[in-house]
Amino acid sequence: LTVEVTLDGRRIELHGLSEEAHEILRHALERNADDKEIKKILEELRK
């Protein structure tokens, strides 16, 4: 799955996400998580 997010003013596409990762990010974006929170989530998903 692919998600497009804006971090530090740049639009980035995240490819190859699992369903779980996609859901976690989608929920964070829906509640307008800040860049710091999104980065933390991405860091966790990379593990």
Results as ranks from 00 to 15, higher is better:
5 V>P: 02
35 D>R: 04
5 V>N: 02
14 L>I: 15
24 I>H: 05
1 L>Q: 09
14 L>H: 02
2 T>N: 07
31 R>Q: 10
45 L>V: 06
10 R>W: 12
29 L>I: 14
20 E>T: 11
14 L>Y: 06
12 I>C: 07
15 H>K: 12
36 K>P: 06
6 T>L: 12
12 I>P: 03
44 E>Y: 12
2 T>W: 11
46 R>I: 15
40 K>T: 08
24 I>G: 02
3 V>T: 06
15 H>L: 07
42 L>K: 00
43 E>S: 10
29 L>Y: 04
42 L>G: 00
11 R>N: 10
7 L>G: 02
22 H>T: 11
47 K>H: 15
8 D>L: 02
40 K>Q: 14
13 E>C: 12
18 S>F: 03
34 D>M: 06
43 E>P: 00
46 R>A: 14
6 T>A: 04
24 I>E: 06
5 V>A: 03
28 A>K: 01
17 L>F: 06
39 K>C: 09
20 E>K: 12
34 D>C: 05
30 E>N: 10
25 L>M: 04
38 I>V: 07
9 G>C: 05
42 L>S: 00
43 E>H: 11
14 L>N: 01
26 R>Y: 08
40 K>A: 13
33 A>P: 06
5 V>F: 12
9 G>H: 03
24 I>N: 05
29 L>W: 06
35 D>M: 08
39 K>I: 12
10 R>Y: 15
33 A>F: 07
27 H>D: 14
6 T>V: 14
13 E>N: 08
41 I>C: 02
47 K>N: 11
20 E>W: 09
25 L>G: 00
7 L>C: 11
4 E>H: 09
24 I>A: 07
44 E>H: 07
47 K>I: 15
13 E>A: 07
35 D>E: 15
41 I>L: 10
8 D>T: 02
33 A>C: 09
1 L>V: 12
23 E>A: 13
42 L>N: 00
38 I>D: 00
42 L>D: 00
19 E>A: 07
37 E>F: 06
11 R>A: 06
38 I>N: 00
20 E>G: 08
38 I>W: 04
1 L>P: 04
31 R>H: 10
15 H>E: 09
47 K>W: 15
25 L>A: 00
16 G>M: 06
40 K>R: 10
15 H>A: 08
47 K>L: 15
10 R>G: 11
47 K>V: 15
36 K>Q: 12
27 H>Y: 10
3 V>D: 03
35 D>P: 08
38 I>T: 01
21 A>N: 06
39 K>N: 08
15 H>C: 07
6 T>D: 07
31 R>K: 09
37 E>V: 07
38 I>S: 00
22 H>D: 04
27 H>C: 10
26 R>H: 06
2 T>E: 04
20 E>R: 10
31 R>F: 06
25 L>C: 00
45 L>R: 01
6 T>H: 08
8 D>W: 01
8 D>E: 07
30 E>V: 06
19 E>S: 11
9 G>M: 01
35 D>W: 10
39 K>E: 09
23 E>W: 12
19 E>H: 12
21 A>H: 10
7 L>W: 04
22 H>Y: 15
5 V>K: 02
28 A>C: 04
32 N>P: 04
20 E>Y: 13
15 H>G: 07
12 I>S: 02
31 R>Y: 07
43 E>C: 08
36 K>V: 14
5 V>I: 15
36 K>Y: 12
47 K>Y: 15
8 D>R: 03
45 L>E: 01
11 R>D: 08
27 H>W: 09
39 K>Q: 11
14 L>T: 03
28 A>D: 00
18 S>G: 05
28 A>L: 09
33 A>R: 04
46 R>K: 13
2 T>G: 05
20 E>Q: 12
40 K>C: 10
45 L>W: 08
9 G>V: 02
29 L>V: 10
26 R>G: 03
19 E>I: 14
26 R>T: 14
38 I>F: 05
27 H>I: 12
17 L>W: 03
45 L>D: 01
32 N>G: 13
9 G>E: 03
27 H>M: 13
21 A>V: 06
41 I>Q: 01
23 E>G: 10
23 E>D: 07
34 D>L: 08
14 L>F: 08
7 L>N: 03
2 T>P: 05
43 E>F: 07
32 N>M: 10
6 T>F: 14
9 G>N: 04
2 T>H: 08
19 E>M: 13
40 K>L: 13
28 A>H: 04
24 I>R: 11
38 I>Q: 00
38 I>Y: 01
29 L>H: 03
31 R>I: 09
41 I>H: 01
1 L>E: 06
38 I>G: 00
28 A>F: 05
21 A>M: 11
21 A>L: 05
16 G>F: 09
39 K>L: 13
16 G>S: 06
4 E>G: 05
41 I>N: 00
47 K>A: 14
36 K>M: 13
12 I>M: 07
5 V>T: 03
35 D>A: 07
11 R>F: 10
24 I>S: 05
37 E>G: 02
37 E>L: 06
22 H>S: 11
1 L>H: 12
34 D>G: 13
8 D>S: 04
16 G>K: 03
16 G>L: 06
23 E>I: 09
7 L>I: 13
24 I>L: 11
26 R>F: 06
14 L>C: 08
13 E>T: 15
40 K>H: 12
8 D>G: 08
20 E>D: 09
41 I>K: 01
26 R>C: 03
3 V>W: 09
34 D>Y: 04
1 L>I: 13
27 H>G: 13
17 L>P: 00
24 I>P: 01
27 H>A: 15
6 T>E: 12
24 I>K: 10
15 H>S: 13
32 N>H: 11
17 L>D: 00
9 G>W: 04
26 R>P: 00
44 E>T: 11
33 A>W: 06
7 L>K: 02
13 E>S: 10
25 L>W: 02
20 E>L: 09
47 K>F: 15
10 R>P: 03
36 K>I: 13
4 E>V: 15
4 E>T: 15
28 A>R: 01
4 E>I: 15
17 L>N: 01
19 E>F: 14
46 R>L: 15
45 L>N: 02
3 V>N: 03
31 R>L: 09
8 D>K: 02
10 R>I: 15
44 E>G: 08
15 H>D: 07
8 D>H: 05
32 N>C: 07
4 E>P: 03
43 E>V: 09
45 L>H: 04
25 L>I: 13
8 D>Y: 03
4 E>W: 14
8 D>V: 01
35 D>G: 09
39 K>F: 12
36 K>D: 14
31 R>T: 07
32 N>I: 05
33 A>E: 05
24 I>V: 08
38 I>H: 00
27 H>F: 10
35 D>K: 04
14 L>K: 01
20 E>A: 11
43 E>Q: 09
15 H>P: 04
46 R>G: 15
